[in-house]
Each structure stands twice: as structure tokens, then as C-alpha cells.
Simulated assay, not measured.
Amino acid sequence: MGPREHRAARERGRAGGRRPVVDDDERAAILARRQRGESNRTIAAEVEGAIGVVHKTLTDAQPDTQRAIAAAEDIAR
């Protein structure tokens, strides 16, 4: 597909790329388990997912976590 086809697809609401493997509930479960100190391998085994999916979910969540920490620090001041 060329640039014209990509633009047309975006205009129809189709941005492209793969659909997310992890839904919101699974994402929350992965983040909560990691917060409790569980390893990526343990989390992957429990949510029946690949370790790479767990790692990507945690990596993608880092900006959210950093914003939450900054907000908590602002409140504490």
C-alpha cells in the first residue's frame, strides 16, 4: 500500500497495525501483580500469556506509572 491508500484507510478509521493482545482487565492484572513484586515469568504463567507480552505491557505502562508517582509527590508537597 502506498501513502494514498494509508491516508484513505486512516480517514475510514483504520489506522493499521495489530490489535492489542492484552485487554484492559489483563493489563490491570499484570500491573497489579508486578506491583506486588511477582516476576515477569510468574505473571506470564498465571495470565497464560507470553513473557514478551508481559514485558511489553510493563514497558508501555512506565510513562503512566511515572505520571502517577509525580502526581503523588505533588499532593504530598
Rank of each mutant, 00 (worst) to 15 (best):
M1C: 14
M1S: 15
G2V: 13
G2Y: 13
G2Q: 13
G2A: 15
P3H: 14
R4C: 10
E5K: 15
E5Q: 15
H6M: 14
H6T: 14
R7Q: 11
R7F: 10
A8Y: 09
R10P: 01
R12N: 06
R12P: 00
G13M: 00
G13L: 01
G13P: 00
R14I: 09
A15V: 09
A15N: 05
A15R: 08
A15W: 09
G16D: 04
G16A: 01
G17L: 10
R18C: 14
R18V: 11
R18Q: 13
R19Y: 08
P20C: 07
P20E: 07
V22G: 04
V22T: 11
V22F: 06
V22R: 05
D23P: 07
D24F: 03
D25F: 09
E26V: 13
R27I: 03
R27D: 02
R27H: 07
R27E: 05
A28N: 01
A28F: 05
A28V: 06
A28D: 04
A29M: 10
A29D: 06
I30L: 02
I30F: 00
I30T: 02
I30A: 01
L31N: 04
L31D: 04
A32L: 08
A32C: 05
R33M: 14
R33Y: 06
R34S: 09
R34I: 03
R34H: 03
Q35C: 08
R36Y: 04
R36Q: 10
R36L: 10
G37K: 04
G37R: 04
E38F: 02
S39P: 02
N40A: 12
N40G: 09
N40C: 12
R41K: 12
R41Q: 13
T42H: 03
I43L: 07
I43M: 05
I43G: 03
I43P: 02
I43Y: 00
I43H: 02
A44F: 04
A44R: 04
A44T: 05
A45V: 10
A45I: 09
E46G: 11
E46L: 13
V47G: 06
V47W: 03
E48N: 14
E48P: 09
G49W: 14
I51V: 15
I51H: 09
G52T: 12
G52K: 07
V53S: 14
V53L: 14
V53T: 15
V54C: 05
V54F: 04
H55E: 11
H55M: 12
K56R: 15
T57S: 09
T57P: 02
T57Y: 01
T57H: 04
L58W: 01
L58Q: 01
L58A: 04
L58T: 00
L58C: 02
T59C: 03
T59F: 06
D60I: 04
D60N: 08
D60Y: 05
Q62L: 11
P63G: 03
P63H: 00
P63D: 00
D64A: 08
D64P: 01
T65D: 03
T65C: 05
Q66C: 00
Q66R: 11
Q66H: 10
Q66F: 06
R67H: 07
R67G: 00
R67Q: 03
A68R: 10
A68N: 10
A68S: 07
A70L: 10
A72L: 14
A72P: 04
A72K: 13
E73G: 06
E73Q: 12
E73H: 08
E73Y: 09
E73A: 13
D74N: 10
D74A: 14
D74Q: 12
I75Q: 11
I75V: 12
A76V: 11
